[in-house]
Amino acid sequence: MFSRKIAVLSTKFENLDGLPTARKYLGRKVFSTSGLFVGKVNDLVFKHNALAGVIVSGRYRIFVDKEYFSSDTDDAIMLSIDPILFIIGKQVFDVEGRKLGKVVGLEKGTADNSFGSLLVRKNIISKVKKIPRSHISICKENIILSKAYP
């Protein structure tokens, strides 16, 4: 209400109406495409003077590229993906209802939102099993494998 008027010194802009500032992004909630609360915007990342993405702090501290933004309002940022990091910790069941363990890691070659295999372990002393992505039938609250898994 009592904010000082901003004087504009620019060859491109006459005023700042409708132009978001960094402060509006900070603290904004970020939700995944399925409505999972990813975290809050903690920092902004720029490349060539343009916004490249945001750093989100929540259960994990993640850099999310702007390409994954589905919508961007004053209230929240909606992503077009479910960050695969949130798969870690999920339980894995096969189609027979057998509990294979928990996801302890992901095998991925690139930084994008995809993975090749799940690393699953039943308990602290058991060996880590590698389960290819193609064997996953359902990946929501937990993971249920398809009939293809031996």
Partner: peptide, 11 residues
């Protein structure tokens, strides 16, 4: 004594 799991994998 077994867990009940829904189609989304939720226990």
């Amino acid at each position: 004594g077994k867990e009940a799991v829904d189609p989304h994998g939720a226990v």
